[in-house]
Nucleic acid binder design. Structure first.
Lengths: 235, 235
DNA sequence: CCCGGCGTTTGATAAATATCAAGCCGTCCA
DNA sequence: TGGACGGCTTGATATTTATCAAACGCCGGG
């Protein structure tokens, strides 16, 4: 790894509390690599050689089964991925591909396990990260099992407008990636996402390419019935 | 806690490697309680006062949203639950209720966090438990998002027959709990589960109450197309 | 022993979602 | 600059799944 990349990694929540020598162990065998879009980084079923840390760009976690495919997570910097597989040394459950040009740190799994055993702060950070991933996954399952596709889209839009700093009555968001990915993450086909946008029109949702205008968020909220126990990524 | 209950707890994977004094800290404030069936133990949104350990019986983890409800996990002894909420001290994402008479150990969350910080073996066990929960949740999401309800049922039956020690060509299983719970876990209505059983008849599936006979598992397997990355609880 | 309740099944129907097909519209590349 | 490609939309249709209603049967309580 280039030495001027190191401070950047050091700043990540996962590594901030780490003792210097433990950190040194981790990065000794680590790479920081840049990938173009749509590169498959990981194939589900393979063994976890490296813990991955997305430093810049975007990554999709997805899974396939007999001609079907679904997106399970969209990652933004800074996130680790396949932490659970790394820690327990079991095969990946998801594949990963870049959605845009991305910089990714690759840390040998064995080193992660070594430092995990030796450094309590690191172990602590790992556990918190894992717990967050678990909770996110539960929320995802609840979203899919409890709501219709229109309801999922409505809630997605409300989450995005909050994240992108819109008002509480109207707002505007730019979809952060292709609609087909949003559709797949929300558990529907692209055609269905289009139609779902259409059926949100009476609730003040207007789409122009990647731009979405929300002109009546109260009414949208009445339809979406958001709850922190599904929709709040921080809760 | 009654002193003759202690050895039983001590045997659990989570506590086996634990130093004596650390274990003592955990046990000091703990209860072991017996609950009748259908008691609501935890309500989603509440704060995690206790880590729960199911010692005997059965527990359903479920979640509701506006008149809808879904089962996210069925627990058999010995399992912990709401570990993630306990560790990160955030509200429960799921409710829990007993499905049968159950004995459950309740360990104050604060004690769990204290021992977690002090004892490396315990931290290690916690992380493995968490990683397993996370992976199970991912598998659940994949199952729901990638397969139809008939496919989910077919795979469920194959999992059960393997767990209950059936052969590889034919076998018989007894459903471990009410069909409505299985339906809810598989993400369908009870009516639909009935019909799904019906459409598996040509694949050698015959139902008699809680007994299910599988007379042509090869054909069932061709339909189900099981994969360890969704169906193997141990992988 | 009979009764009532609840879980289950079955049927009829409706709603949600996917599939197939075609056309549109950008972008990228030759 | 023309064209090819991929993503998006729209329409028609098929499939999947849910809902509503009724009947059955098991099981526990009076």
């Amino acid at each position: 790894m280039r030495s001027d990349d190191v401070p950047e990694i050091r700043e990540l929540t996962l590594f901030r509390a780490l003792a210097d020598d433990a950190f040194e162990t981790l990065i000794r065998g680590a790479y920081l690599q840049t990938f173009p879009p749509t590169v498959e980084l990981i194939r589900e079923g393979d063994s976890p050689d490296f813990l991955h840390v997305l430093v810049e760009g975007g990554v999709e976690l997805f899974s396939g089964w007999h001609r079907r495919e679904t997106t399970l997570s969209m990652l933004a910097p800074v996130s680790t991925f396949i932490l659970a597989a790394t820690i327990t040394d079991r095969p990946y459950l998801m594949s990963a591909r870049t959605v845009s040009k991305s910089r990714i740190a690759l840390i040998p799994s064995e080193d992660v396990r070594t430092v995990f055993d030796a450094d309590r702060d690191f172990a602590n950070a790992i556990v918190n990260e894992l717990a967050d991933c678990f909770r996110a996954s539960i929320k995802h399952a609840k979203n899919v099992k409890l709501r219709s596709s229109v309801e999922r889209l409505a809630n997605y839009l409300l989450c995005e407008v909050a994240a992108q700093g819109g008002g509480s009555e109207e707002g505007q968001i730019t979809l952060p990636y292709e609609k087909r990915l949003i559709a797949s993450w929300l558990g529907m086909t692209p055609e269905n996402l289009s139609r779902a946008f259409g059926s949100l029109r009476p609730y003040g949702v207007r789409v122009e390419g990647a731009l979405v205008h929300l002109s009546d968020m109260s009414s949208l909220r009445r339809l979406a019935k958001p709850t922190p126990l599904i929709d709040d990524p921080a809760s």
